[in-house]
Amino acid sequence: MNVLYFAWVRERIGIPKETVTTDAETVADLVAELRAREDRYDLAFSDLSALRVAVDQELTDFDASIKGAREVAFFPPMTGG
């Protein structure tokens, strides 16, 4: 699946997008896998209350299933308007 990062999450991890092969069942499982990779991921995901997630371009929460998902995006709380 494609994993996307926006705003300071993108800056902290250092890339806007990557393809991830995973058996993770939920967003939280995917986060745990990413955090185990490298410090920059661990740092970016250290406070989940400061993050939001979208699965297939719909806002959801960290307990959401990602089975069959094509795209998961992580970003800080939005500041539109």
Partner: peptide, 23 residues
């Protein structure tokens, strides 16, 4: 659209410093 549309604002100060606007 302030809190549920996927936009993120970053301020560029004249000093060259940048900062993401916090929700």
């Amino acid at each position: 659209l302030k809190s549920r549309a996927p936009f993120w604002k970053k301020e560029h100060a004249t000093t060259g410093e940048t900062s993401w606007v916090a929700a």
